[in-house]
Write a protein that binds this DNA or RNA. Structure first.
Lengths: 200, 200
DNA sequence: GTTAGCATGTAAGGAGTTACATGATTTT
DNA sequence: AAAATCATGTAACTCCTTACATGCTAAC
């Protein structure tokens, strides 16, 4: 289910797409970006960079501006790397909306068309909805004596996913230019959150 | 230490603590339980069960009641397994409140004392608060031209974590028997949160 | 009688972590 | 001068996934 590999690769491609950077800096940005959990270790970043170098997706920047005296290797995208980034960002399918990958795609949404963005957003939303349905269905069968904490965990989990579905709906509406709210999820009449996020 | 392996082990121990079960059933329950992401594969469950068998934490149940004609292996906890489960559940420390492990501990909270529960709940809360602070701090430094989608992702992430902090605060208050009351959730700028929580 | 779901496993391999190593530069 | 943090890497290992392989039983 869902290649989780290449998570780092896409993220690196995306960050370098915004400008050259060296490994250490890359790691910091990566951790801030997908750091809502564990930190990325050097043990995975540097080998990944080497692999991308070998694959000619990135190249070392010749020390043009000597802004720092520190021995560090600055990387930049090659044409092949830029092409690969664009290819990956145009992908529409499970790979784009599975848990790990979705956040990264989203982070670089500015680099895609609205059409792609909508497909990915909607894909993710139905994925979450399916998940909700599955749990509800299975819950109906398994039901009997439910542990108090188990029930609370379940409740909180469902609530979180429902929240994300609402968030996605707001983003979808924003992309479409429709005034927020629709899609059968209310709870709050006015929500300042979901941002304008109108297209470029 | 900070092993994040044994995630399956604790979950299996916990489920078998509630009653004997066979592998297939175990997998279904596990997926419902921590299935808010990817599904556990047979390729990890069965080897894990074998390992636990070798370690004498579990044993095969002799076919006493022939309720089903199906060839299936029902497992149950041994005394050592029960002891190990209790030991793990009594652990207070990072291992107990890291992302993956927390949910599982929580799911089996009924098997522990209130004292332990409070320590774990508070530990998790300060962990999340730290995370929030770190992001806020780093955000203050990195700030400049922020991509629209990057900003929205950031915002949503912060909001989700803040939500979980509030949830934890409510649970802590409930444990203490106090009527619900916020401890310091909301958009506090910098708050190391209570929770002394000493440990390795 | 054939499909769908139950039930158990193994082998190969990917992705990332931990722990180990090293050294430069900036701050206190 | 010491401590902190910047900066880059490697080797061993763990956990888990994918894909493969097998066979039973219930339902249609």
């Amino acid at each position: 289910m869902a290649r989780r590999g290449d998570t780092i690769e896409l993220a690196v491609l995306g960050l370098l797409h915004e400008g050259p950077m060296h490994g250490y800096e890359l790691r910091k940005r990566l951790n801030l970006m997908l750091g809502w959990g564990r930190l990325l270790s050097y043990g995975s970043l540097y080998p990944a960079l080497k692999k991308m170098l070998r694959g000619s997706l990135i190249s070392e920047v010749g020390a043009t501006a000597v802004t720092s005296r520190r021995q560090r290797i600055t990387y930049q995208l090659t044409d092949a790397g830029r092409a690969e980034f664009e290819r990956l960002m145009s992908e529409v399918g499970p790979a784009a909306w599975e848990d790990d990958n979705f956040d990264i795609r989203f982070r670089f949404f500015s680099s895609t068309d609205m059409e792609i963005r909508l497909r990915v957003l909607e894909g993710r939303r139905s994925r979450l909805q399916e998940r909700l349905d599955r749990v509800q269905r299975e819950l109906a069968m398994t039901q009997k004596e439910v542990d108090r904490y188990a029930a609370e965990l379940q409740r909180h989990g469902v609530e979180s996913v429902e929240r994300e579905v609402r968030w996605l709906s707001e983003l979808i509406n924003a992309e479409r230019g429709t005034p927020t709210d629709q899609t059968g999820s209310q709870t709050s009449p006015t929500r300042p959150s979901a941002a304008p996020v109108t297209n470029d």
